[in-house]
Amino acid sequence: MTGVAPLKSGAPADGGPAPPPAAPARRRGRRAGFDRVSLIVVFVGVPFAGYVLLVLYPFTQAAFYSLTAWTGFSPDQPFVGLDNYTRIFADNLFLQALGNSVLLLVVVPLVTLTLSFALAALVTFGGPTTGAVRGLGSSSFYRVVSFFPYVVPAIVIGIIWSQIYNPANGLLNGALTTLGLQRFQDFAWLGQADTAMAASTVVIIWSFIGFYMVLFVAAIKGIPAELFEAARLDGAGRLRSAVHVAIPGIAGSIRTAYIYMGILALDAFVYMQALNPSGGPDNSTLVITQQIYRTAFSQGQFGLACAMGVVLAVVTFLFVAAIFTVSRLLRGPLESRT
């Protein structure tokens, strides 16, 4: 449909001659046509122009730079084709960073959202199985508290946790030695290759469990209570109610959450930068975003950095596509079950 017409008022009547895209559903003549066109041009045109300049254009430019050997401050941008891509895929450090990022992508959303859902289930329908389907008492307290980490800036979370992990006077080793585990005295959680990544992952997960728990609580409350009661009539316990009623009922929210968490795990820049700015012992916590940052702004190899950025974007899109595919495949069986 062409021409300017209000979205919901059905087919536009014949607009007549100029001014071109008149708005006839409510007849208001030339004046109204100009009014409406100017509104659309200014309200969408101006912000969209800024958005194109500062957001869309940089993305396309990055794709172009990835084919050049540009160092940023020289005027010439020698075209090198796919050289940057062959270089980064032969670069062990980049491959390690990519591998670490993919590891985060696999682990972080799964663990975070599983725990979030479990807590949300406890709060909403994990209560006594006698009487009405309900959650545990004082659940609003748990909800408010769980949300706290979300409002703490990520960089501050990183700084606090790097102190918690401090070998000599950190909270974690203090607690463990108090419990009698003397071997953790001076244990360097972030300083050893076999624990640094796990310790960093815990920090990211800790930051987001509460946020998604609150989100799932709200979503579960949107499921009609009759469904839970019917499940219970059929003899379903809490676990089966969760699998057969709650998860299908909030599938849309889970999918959105999974995508957001995945994108966040692929970034992870703030957390890693706060916990181990150098990439950790043996680069065990180096992630792709840190490598991009380093390549671009410390080494000035902007073409190379943009190629890494394109790889990151491709991984992101593949991930989003995979989530949509999986959720479409799952929707069939889950829906037929309820």
């Binding site: 957001v55 254009y57 940089p58 993305f59 430019q61 990055a62 730079y65 994108i263 692929l266 970034d267 820049f269 975003t289 991009i292 940052y293 671009a296 902007f302 950095a305 943009c306 950025g309 394109v310 990151l312 974007a313 992101t316």
Partner: peptide, 9 residues
């Protein structure tokens, strides 16, 4: 879009 791709340009 990953913001990281855009920051350089």
């Amino acid at each position: 879009f990953p913001v990281f791709l855009a920051v350089v340009p």
